[in-house]
């Protein structure tokens, strides 16, 4: 019979190997073997992800590795989630962050990198995708009650819509329940200050630093 430690170690290695198919297989095997799912996520998948993240910080691994490791981990989490929910368990997180590329803008790579880094940092991240209507952000804040809601814009023409998130959150009476975060190539600290956004993230690393500070 496979032990918890063995399967955690194999899951960790598979994440570090960026092998999403193997991660899925291991997670399915774990479900059959009635292994502790929370431990598998935290001490197996996340441990592998953290190792990759550390090597990225040290400059020995690069963005493609981080993104691929994250996808491998997500593949495993997707297999485990139904069982996890059925047994009412949950994985520790620093908080929930809702994030999306704003209405009219389909440039989502930057947003995807940011959400990957935030996941690695231990946040639960809800991805709203791209070309996200302002009302969708507001609804997501109501539904997920996140710590932070983030919007990304690559163009000056879509950047102006970030102001509407602030306004519509206020109209819905929930602006005080959440921190807003803005990012994207044309976005600056000055712009964030001007529209009243709480956090300006210049890039993925900056987003992690500032979200960590907000979570404390």
């Amino acid at each position: 019979m496979v032990t918890q430690d063995e399967i955690n170690a194999r899951a960790k290695a598979a994440v570090m190997d960026f092998d999403d198919e193997l991660v899925e297989e291991i997670c399915e095997e774990a479900l059959e073997a009635k292994i502790d799912i929370v431990s598998l996520i935290q001490d197996g998948l996340t441990a592998g992800m953290n190792e990759v993240g550390d090597q990225f910080e040290q400059g020995t691994l690069f963005l493609p590795h981080v993104i691929a490791a994250s996808e491998a981990m997500s593949a495993g989490v997707a297999v485990l989630t139904p069982a996890l929910e059925a047994e009412g368990g949950s994985v520790k997180s620093k908080g929930t962050i809702v994030i999306g590329t704003i209405e009219g803008d389909i440039h989502s790579i930057g947003k995807d990198i940011v959400l990957t880094m935030l996941k690695i940092a231990g946040f639960k991240v809800v991805d709203l995708g791209r070309d996200v209507a302002i009302a969708t952000y507001v609804d997501a804040v109501k539904e997920h009650k996140p710590l932070i809601v983030g919007s990304s814009a690559l163009m000056t023409t879509t950047m102006v819509l970030q102001m509407q998130i602030e306004e519509q959150l206020k109209e819905a009476g929930i602006r005080d329940t959440v921190l807003t975060m803005v990012g994207g190539a044309p976005v600056t600290q000055d712009w964030a200050d001007k529209i009243g956004s709480d956090i300006y993230a210049e890039n993925a690393t900056d987003a992690v630093v500032k979200c960590n500070a907000a979570a404390e």
Partner: peptide
């Protein structure tokens, strides 16, 4: 269309 190549094995091989 519309997705990215960052997570692809091919990317890790070729970059």
């Amino acid at each position: 269309p519309g997705e990215h190549f960052l997570a692809q094995k091919h990317t890790r091989k070729y970059y």
